[in-house]
Design a protein around this nucleic acid. Structure first.
Lengths: 192, 192
DNA sequence: ATAACCATGTAAATGGTTACATGATTAG
DNA sequence: CTAATCATGTAACCATTTACATGGTTAT
């Protein structure tokens, strides 16, 4: 799913400008599982316009660039449907935080705590945001995806909360063992 | 976290060839939260070698290219540690499947069921894989990350299992309503 | 026999991010 | 007065993916 398809999907939910699409990708219903910035959205919209998949009406404004409101065309709707019927690629996740936690023993305590607690509050924030949405009157697909997001954030929040104390305690203990071991081998010259 | 850092991390767990690293990224402990293919691994290893972050010993083989076994050097270990102390980027997820489920009403039933059940069995497979690993004697960080992975897969498996019936029923119902509505407006010519 | 596995790598193409460029308006 | 918001876009850069190139070995 490239940015062009994402834009078609977002426009299926209603007309929007490039600027508004960016916000939707950041905070809206796609935020959790896809992302895009201006540098990819604006070129995508121009390409879609050239392909006839969206139409554009310009609203003149004073003091800022004219607002370009894009709408999904029937061709674009067909294109979206075609993309939705492709075989889906496997999910791709990149998480620096998990990579760092994996190597917890190599981190200094302050950094580890910062990263951990930042992650936990991030999930709490996402969960709160999801729970503040109004669930009435949305189609089955969208409701289902919201529920899945909520299940995900809840499980991560729970795991991070429940294992916090023990995790830090264990990492600390192992770091102390490693440190004393290193001191020992430096003293006795057994290293290498 | 670029592929170079991933390689350093993987080599921290033990010496390996490019080929073995690829497998580790596919099936090993990083599989869930980072990915890389040959096209990025081999150039990364050569760059790391030039930077002195890894060393390489060649094992001559007959009938296939000589095996190049890479090891993390002290410089590389320091580099890994430095990377681990950067501020982590936000997690990035791209999920075609979730995007498709979001637009469930636009999919034909067979495709929707295929995608849904494929996703469910994917999570089951991952969970099974995780549960078959031996948890004794691994450091706190790695154990923690495994647990987090398990929590994630379990919650997804549970959500998809529990909501399956209702999801299809609701989508079907809404598609039928939409279809009859479209038939109606075509007959009466109210469209546009 | 056929497919999968072992084992390396390059080059082109794709796609996305970041930085740059501009600048008025509105809320704190 | 400062920061955030509104609003568009380009160009250079970066990273990754895909396709290509090679070819013996092992399991089904």
């Amino acid at each position: 799913m490239d940015v062009k398809t994402l834009c078609l999907g977002a426009l299926k939910l209603g007309d929007a400008t490039g600027y508004e699409l960016k916000k939707q990708f950041e905070e809206g219903p796609f935020a959790h599982f896809h992302q895009a910035g201006y540098g990819s959205i604006y070129p995508a919209l121009n390409a879609l316009l050239a392909e006839g998949k969206v139409t554009c009406r310009e609203e003149i404004q004073k003091g800022r660039p004219d607002k370009k409101v894009y709408s999904l065309s029937p061709v674009g709707e067909a294109g979206l449907q075609a993309a939705l019927h492709q075989r889906p690629a496997l999910d791709k996740v990149r998480s620096d935080v998990v990579f760092m936690l994996f190597f917890a023993e190599m981190l200094d305590e302050a950094h580890l705590r910062g990263v951990y607690d930042g992650y936990l509050s991030y999930f709490r924030h996402c969960l709160e945001h999801l729970q503040n949405l109004d669930d009435t009157d949305i189609p089955a697909g969208r409701r289902f995806v919201r529920g899945m997001g909520a299940a995900f954030y809840e499980s991560m929040e729970a795991y991070l909360s429940e294992n916090r104390q023990e995790f830090f305690a264990t990492v600390d203990a192992q770091e102390k063992v490693a440190a004393s071991f290193e001191t020992k081998i430096k003293k006795t010259g057994t290293d290498q």
